[in-house]
Design a protein around this nucleic acid. Structure first.
Lengths: 244, 244
DNA sequence: TAGTGGTCTAGACCACAAA
DNA sequence: TTGTGGTCTAGACCACTAA
């Protein structure tokens, strides 16, 4: 909260204030349930009009990060299971919200030339070097998900020499390579487990698997990661709310 | 567009204007790609301030119903496949967007007392009378989805005597019983097809099925319908975009 | 009663697109 | 040059919550 608004910047005021508040919530400086400063306080602290403050709070509320109560104040929202279909959420956070204790085993890690199909999705020529990281994700020590991550090596050279087992991949990418995910597109399907996948997930061959393929984009809107998620059909479900 | 804003109503102006514009788009009075009146025109036509007009247009834009281009104008958005995870979309619209020609066969229709499980989801006692409608949905004359709908009979008495084959169920519910869906909650899973389901969908037993259970709420926020959707895993996928 | 968010206004200047 | 949406301001009154 030491950030201030830069009046000479070309960035709109509301955008700067959004980043300030968003960052403070993201870093946990305000925790779920905490009350944010009132609109009046924010106008004074950042020297912007109330309309501009409200524009930012409305954005955050629409995204589900805060909620507002007339006569009471504005509060940091408790994360919900819904959010996994709206935001990029780590496996760890997702499992904690579902009431599981997450853990991870690295199955394989290495470099490989991009197959045609993945090259197309990441907008790179086939053959360009990728980092491939295959992990088994457990919930309460039982297999839940296989996660296959393909990263363009050019953007994170030497990743495999880092301690990607100890630190969440997402934090490592941000800290060392300055990569933050701004958005992602994904496709969700139902498939049946191959013999190999079944063994890893400790399910019967041909059991149902919720399969997600995702392309994640950096803050510069460059596609950097292609991800395959194989969720156990008997343990994992997605939830969301629809408007009429 | 003959609607006008009622200054004596307790409803906020922006809410009334939202309903007017939303309705006109929903009824197809403006079609995808059409330009909406400019902000200035809307302020004049409805005698509200520009900020109020913008509040409404921003809401519609956030929901993906319109898009805005500085210097050009505001336009009705083309529906996307994404929307099926955000809005309540009919099978017919969904298939057309995916480039298929939809059709329907009614498999069964009748009344039954609510099983315990469905009663819980619809907040009614077990045993209350439900309408059950089971339909096979086809895309380009090939099975795509089995749709099992359970409606509380009390809210749509005599539904089965109506011509629910000719008219979309949604329109019939609105026209005859005044029921509009305001929102819904759903759970998405991967399952394998039972022998019976496999026969209906023309797939192998144990093939993967994308299974969705949904509770839909009327404009009065009353749960009225419980829906089970069994989508063929080899033909149907969901797509969406995530924020970082 | 004091403090909070909800709604609404008039008016200004800017950036961008198209003619 | 004209018309569009984008950003921002000060100020007003209302509705709700909690003390």
């Amino acid at each position: 909260m030491t950030d201030a608004i830069n009046r000479t910047s070309k960035l709109p005021l509301y955008h700067q204030l959004y980043e300030i508040l968003r960052g403070a919530i993201g870093r946990g400086e305000w925790k779920p349930g905490d009350m944010l400063p009132s609109e009046l306080e924010l106008t004074e602290r950042y020297q912007v009009s109330r309309i501009t403050v409200r524009q930012v709070l409305d954005m955050l509320a629409k995204e589900g990060l805060i909620y507002r109560q007339r006569g009471r104040g504005t509060f940091v929202a408790h994360p919900t299971v819904d959010q996994v279909l709206q935001r990029i959420v780590s496996f760890t956070d997702d499992m904690r919200r579902r009431g599981f204790e997450p853990s991870t085993r690295v199955l394989s890690a290495g470099l490989l030339p991009a197959p045609e199909e993945i090259g197309r999705k990441l907008l790179i020529p086939a053959g360009e070097e990728l980092v491939r990281l295959q992990r088994l994700r457990l919930a309460d020590d039982e297999p839940m998900t296989i996660e296959e991550s393909y990263l363009i090596h050019r953007y994170c050279p030497g990743l495999l020499e880092r301690d990607y087992r100890a630190e969440p991949l997402r934090e490592l990418l941000e800290r060392v390579y300055g990569i933050r995910w701004s958005r992602a597109t994904q496709v969700i399907r139902a498939i049946t487990a191959s013999r190999e996948l079944a063994t890893l997930l400790a399910i019967r061959p041909n059991a149902a698997v919720l399969f997600i393929e995702r392309v994640s984009y950096s803050q510069d809107n460059v596609p950097i990661e292609f991800l395959r998620l194989y969720h156990r059909g008997d343990r994992y479900a997605l939830q969301n709310e629809l408007r009429g």
